[in-house]
Amino acid sequence: MLKTYAGSWDAITWIIAFITIAIVVYIIRSFGRKDYRKGEAQKAFFSGEDVLSPEEMHVRASNIYWGFVEAMKGYYAWMRKIHNGIINDYIAWFVGVAAIMFIVFFIQEVIK
């Protein structure tokens, strides 16, 4: 039992609950109709189009989340610009962060 700030978490209880619910779901499912037809009724309906073979249906990695990347086009363009792979810029970022830290730390004394 892991005590967090506001509550607690116990993996074993969760697993027991999960299994219990899974059994209940299975029981409810087994009440379902048993007279469905094998074969034609199981096929996916693609607006009347022929279903492609599994090899052709596999979505390649670049196409997954295309919409997400497209929606955040500006952000990704900016990120590509920053992640330019040039070692000089890596060090420049480091120096920049250190400079910001110095300003934050010493600005009070400058004002004083």
Partner: peptide, 9 residues
């Protein structure tokens, strides 16, 4: 999805 799922290639 892209590495493990799909038909055997």
């Amino acid at each position: 999805h892209s590495a493990f799922m799909g038909a055997k290639i």
